[in-house]
Design a protein around this nucleic acid. Structure first.
Lengths: 342, 342
DNA sequence: ATTGTTAATGTAAAGCTTTTCATAGACAAA
DNA sequence: TTTGTCTATGAAAAGCTTTACATTAACAAT
């Protein structure tokens, strides 16, 4: 069943059927009714492929993400916000998950180009030189999420990982901590890895606190890796740190679990601060003090910028940095007050 | 830039270019080389729309899910498994999230039909009569996930919610509990709502234990609703239950949180069992006893069945039920041993 | 020299729409 | 009657590819 067949049955031309479907030009009432009848009877639905081929517009947005096993709920929130905005404007989304595999990621860009998506929302994690050369001449509008790239001037939507991590560290310092550990993410992740670590290091330096290499460990987002990192730190250090900053809440959770397992209590024996403000953070034992970032705003903004490029010829702004705030719960001990009251 | 232009520049016909691209018929070595050169120089990429229009095959699978705000991580696992299987066979996926909105869901089915996806993976939640009439005459292969429908004979991939919930309840009973509460999901959700509740009720009846209506509450998947439900139960009942079965881990978490907040300890004062085996379940305080179901297998099977329909003319099996098991952790107290040792 | 075979390549139709431009008919005005 | 205006409709091109079929050339066999 195609438009031609509908036209034949209704005794009109295909142009007329098209007009009925798309409401482009006025069509006489009885013709419209007859055509609509046929469409209902036959269950005909127009072929988007032909339409999109003709119109050079697919109303489809490609979304490229990079997640491993653990499903980061913040990503879910962001994608929800994205689909909300896009759906309202009639766009569909194609989702591609390149599991941190650079080559695969580039393949998805190629597929999206062949599929002629109108635009791409790109959750960048590991941006390589190859990415640069490839994307430099890529013909489809891209909005980057989670990272920026000065060379390519894609509009970008970011969390302020650096300042937020600095804030978290400073908070620990304000609370009187000096022996502070850090559980990080590898550097290939520019945002959660590099930026957060930098925030930690700068805060320490600015406060003239030396970073003890024995207090450092590296995980991979997972709870287990937080557990292992905490263990690593405790085993390795003679004098224990009084606080540990974990670059993700899940790793913070793993760290806390190791501690309670070994008989330490949080925050009495060790303070923990996380990053992400995961759904369960308020419900942990103790409730986790962490950095909350506005994921919903990130998704909404990214989708909006892309839409502006597509429909208004350009993004309203080149860069959007999401708000963050420190959520004070119960996993950090205030050493100063303690000392005063003693 | 299109195939015609490439052909012109290479001095060959478009048929030859097509042959070079798709490796369908032998092409002389020097022609192949020249064409490939032009393609590389120009950055030409074939237009999938035209190809798909011609071939009646889009290599795209539509996935319809229904999630609210909280991102159920089990869904993420399932989708990961799906994309793994589909990607290996060269399929892309289009993701649509109908937020429990029936009408919206049907709209997505229409869009997917117009986009001519090859098949659909349908996470069914609230299957209405309207769905039935609509899907009855839907021309694209569908595999249902999470629910089955006897009338429409779509292949389906399921968790055995009923038996698993029965098992969880029986476990509580075996542990000596008789005053058992239940925090459920509304009935419109056939799987997490209806089936699990049925499992609970049947287990109770089979063991001649009366269900105390004061021990019953209903949530909506969220942690908060678990918290509120637990409160509801405690406030409402004079004699407290000794154990509560929460139909989802998140609600179990909320319930535990309310209990610890009020000074009860789990499992000493109240046992809690969950359902889902969420990532964080082993790391809660206490680690949550719950039902684990093999989400990865569900995703893998669903994708495989769909692929079989598309490429082998029919699904290998009509119905796949995933394994489940009870994971015993620390949130349920054994009343019997306790009584014996006393 | 003729015919047949094979390999490489080209031509054109088909897949389904949208849209421009042309046409036809109705009606009013001259 | 002729001309003009307006509305509703149709014909056909264009969008880009694949592929069945046709053609050509080279070469071998008769």
């Amino acid at each position: 069943m195609n438009i031609k067949e509908v036209a034949r049955r209704a005794g009109v031309s295909i142009a007329t059927v098209s007009r009925v479907i798309n409401n482009t030009t006025p069509v006489s009432e009885n013709v419209r009714k007859r055509v609509e009848e046929i469409i209902n009877e036959t269950g005909y639905r127009p072929n988007s492929l032909a339409k999109e081929l003709q119109n050079h517009k697919t109303n489809t947005i490609g979304v490229i993400i990079s997640v491993a096993v653990l499903d980061v709920t913040s990503l879910g929130t962001t994608i929800n916000a994205i689909t909300d905005v896009l759906k309202a404007k009639g766009y569909s989304i194609m989702l591609a998950n390149s599991r941190f595999d650079s080559k695969e990621e580039l393949d998805y860009f190629k597929i999206f180009q062949e599929k002629r998506v109108d635009g791409i929302l790109y959750f960048a994690v590991n941006f390589t030189e190859e990415h640069y050369w490839f994307l430099k001449k890529y013909p489809i509008p891209i909005v980057m999420i989670g990272q920026e790239n000065e060379l390519l001037d894609f509009p970008c939507v970011l969390h302020d990982n650096y300042y937020a991590a600095k804030l978290a560290t400073e908070y620990l310092i304000q609370m009187g901590h000096k022996k502070i550990g850090y559980i990080g993410i590898p550097e290939y992740d520019a945002a959660a890895g590099k930026e957060r670590r930098k925030g930690f290091e700068v805060a320490m330096r600015l406060n003239n606190i030396e970073i003890n290499p024995h207090y450092l460990a590296e995980g991979n987002f997972s709870i287990e890796s937080g557990y292992a990192s905490m263990k690593h730190i405790l085993v390795q250090s003679v004098v224990k740190p009084t606080a540990v900053f974990a670059a993700t809440d899940f790793m913070a959770l793993g760290a806390m679990h190791y501690l309670t397992e070994k008989g330490y209590t949080v925050p009495e024996d060790m303070s923990i601060i996380g990053f992400d403000d995961v759904d369960v953070a308020p419900y942990l034992n103790p409730p986790l003090t962490t950095i909350h970032s506005d994921n919903h705003a990130v998704g909404r903004q990214a989708a909006t910028l892309l839409l502006q490029i597509l429909e208004e010829g350009g993004p309203g702004i080149k860069k959007f940095v999401a708000n963050y705030e420190l959520i004070e719960r119960k996993s950090v001990k205030n050493l100063i007050i303690d000392n005063c009251t003693k």
